[in-house]
Every structure is written in structure tokens, then in C-alpha cells.
Amino acid sequence: MTTLVSVLYIVAFVLFIYGLMGMTGPRTAVRGNWIAAAGMTVAVVATLLLPGMGNWLLIALGLGIGAAIGVPAARRVKMTAMPQMVALFNGVGGGAVALIAWVEFRVTTGYEAEPLYVAIASLFAAIVGSVSFWGSGVAFGKLQEILPGRPVTLGRLQQPLNIVLLAAALACAVIIAAGGRSEWLIIGVLVAAGLIGVMVVLPIGGADMPVVISLLNACTGLSAAAMGLALDNTALIVAGMIVGASGSILTNLMAQAMNRSIPAILAGGFGGGGGGG
């Protein structure tokens, strides 16, 4: 049974990589997208074949809710609203990572009997996933013009505040890794990381948003890979890391195409109007 799952995972990786290669050429792009989608189907089916799986009703419920929201959202969205939709889809992916990390903390009572690397990988996934969820949420809000598209900054307070938030998230994570069991610690990690996501994206103007979404996309990929390390699942490691690496390169290419550098974009304050991308 497990051999079958491993073989199916390998098939899925081949489809992902082949699909992505197809997506880099204009003629093969549509087909590449569907090949990658086929790879995803194979990966999901393989996971459901793992020995000892149960809770089928709840699994079906989760998949059903996701499909019921995702399909109409993707079909009905206007072409002009595509960038914010991608931000939203990216955000829920990061949110999924953060939630799984939270449950992982709860079911292992603070990684009590787990090796240290599981705690570290899971906490990394929690931080990056939460940053991605809230950062993408702000990006969506700005492009959708729920939030002001112009840069919102705290001026000189911005950088010190971000550093304090990062220190708070890391401090909670280190206490957990050192043996802290209080659930408030993991909530502290998630909240501080979420605030980082909000504070980093708020000062960025609408015109730079596509690059930021691509950056958050790479972050979600990395957090998925870290979650794969924590759960010892090869499919998550491979697919997450491929997205993490290709997303980083892509972010760089997009920034170059716009004659912008990534540090300059993250410093914020450029591009007034919303939906400029």
C-alpha cells in the first residue's frame, strides 16, 4: 500500500515538473496547467490511499466546501479582478498551513514527544503561513479597493515595529521549541506573524502588488515544504519547494520587468492607485 502511494507521488512530481515546464512556453501553457492539475489529483488520491486513513465524512466535507467556494469564485471573477483573486487563493493556502501547524501543536501537546526538527519545521511553517495569509489578505483588500490602494505607512516607526513583531514571533517559537507547552505561545506566534504580514504589505502601493503577491506565493510554497518536513510527507516537500524556488525566481523576473528591485518594493511608498497591476 505504501509503495503504491510512493509510486503515485512520483507520478505526481513528474506531472508537476512537466506541467510547469509547459507553462513557460506560450503554446504549451494551457496544456501544462492541466498536466499540473492532473498531478495534483494523483497526489490527493494517493494520500487518501494511505493506510489507516479515517474521518472520511469530515474529509469529504472539507473538500466539498473548498470546491463549492473555489470553483464559482474562479469562474465568476472578472478578468480585471484576476490579480486579487490570485492573492486570495494564495492567502488561503498560507492560512491552511498555519491552521495545520496550530492543530499539530495541539495534538502533540506542544511537540512533547516529537524530535526537535519537527517542532522547528512546524513553527517555521506557522510563521510563514500566517505572514502569507494576512499579507495576501491585505493585498486582496488593496486591489479590491476595500483598503486604500495608496501606501499606508507609519513613517519612521515602520521598520522598528516590524522588527519588534518578528522578535515576538521568534521568541514565542523559541520558547515552544525549548519545551513551552502553553497554547498561548502558538497563538502568539500566529498573531505576531499575521501582524508582520499586514504591516509589511500595507505600505506597498497598488502598482507593485503583483510582485508582492508573487513573493507571498513563494513564501507559501516554502511553508508548505516546511510542513512536509514536519509531517514527513515527500509530496509536500517536493511540490512546496518547487513553488518556493520557482516563485522566488519569478518574483525577481517580475521585478526586473518592471524595473524595480525587491528591497525597493518592500520599502514601500510607490504607485498610488489601486489595481495598477
Binding site: M53, S214, I242
Partner: peptide, 28 residues
């Protein structure tokens, strides 16, 4: 192709779904 590719890789990291399946499927 930058934006479609970003969107495609974005779909692939939805594979975190498997993490939820594994943790829920093995019982909580």
C-alpha cells in the same frame, strides 16, 4: 507569461491540502 505562471505555481502549493488530509485522516 509571468502572471499565469505565478497563478499556476500558486495552485500547486495548494498541495498543503494533503497535510490536512493526513492529520485529519489519522484521527484527531
Amino acid at each position: 507569461l509571468h502572471t499565469p505562471l505565478m497563478s499556476g505555481t500558486n495552485a500547486i502549493h495548494g498541495i498543503v491540502l494533503l497535510g490536512g488530509l493526513i492529520v485529519l485522516g489519522h484521527g484527531v
